[in-house]
């Protein structure tokens, strides 16, 4: 069930659109920010609020890279794998992160600290290779810099 504050945030988002379903992505992001991911129950709650079917909403939720339909770790590392970063060695950065946190792409480290995901070009190509941890973007990430970057994400 949606909490009172969750419902209020959704009500605010809906005012930006002429009909409720316009806020579908906003709603998924708002609730995910609070709950970490979108479970089947959560999906149903949001769909009911938007007055659309859960299947309809799932066709939107599963379309996007940043909506999580599975639980994620306390933090998420998005490793850019597009071409400017690839030229500058993003594969080695990805290997380093996977090795350090014992998590393959799409998986979470055993201690629940970090989920590792590939991501399309982050738009920081002049500082390639780029990695985004949660909402923070780091540029010129060399494999040996990964551990110190990760220190604040416990």
């Amino acid at each position: 069930m949606l909490s009172g504050t969750e419902r209020q945030e959704l009500e605010d988002a809906v005012t930006h659109y002429p009909d409720k379903r316009g806020a579908a992505i906003d709603a998924l992001l708002i609730i995910q920010r609070r709950r970490g991911w979108i479970s089947d129950e959560t999906l149903l709650d949001i769909a009911q609020f938007l007055e659309i079917t859960a299947e309809d909403l799932d066709s939107i939720a599963t379309f996007y890279n940043l909506i999580f339909r599975k639980p994620v770790g306390r933090h998420v590392a998005f490793v850019c794998d597009s071409v400017s970063c690839w030229i500058k060695g993003s594969e080695q950065v990805q290997e380093q992160i996977k090795a350090l946190y014992a998590a393959d792409l799409g998986q979470t480290s055993p201690d629940g600290r970090l989920t590792v995901l590939p991501i399309a070009c982050l738009g920081h190509c002049e500082r390639a290779p780029a990695v985004m941890i949660d909402q923070d973007v780091y540029g010129e990430v060399m494999p040996e810099k990964v551990e110190s970057i990760m220190e604040k994400y416990t």
């Binding site: 930006h16 659109y17 009909d19 409720k20 379903r21 316009g22 806020a23 579908a24 992505i25 906003d26 998924l28 992001l29 938007l50 659309i52 066709s59 939107i60 379309f63 996007y64 890279n65 940043l66 909506i67 991501i119 399309a120």
Partner: peptide, 27 residues
């Protein structure tokens, strides 16, 4: 004026897919 933050999908840059996305439909 409203800000709509998307959730990451390249095709949304195509203007008619973007319009579907803004309407809360699959983009």
């Amino acid at each position: 004026l409203h800000l709509h933050a998307s959730a990451g999908r390249y095709i949304c840059g195509e203007e008619t897919a973007l319009i579907n996305a803004l309407e809360g439909k699959r983009a």
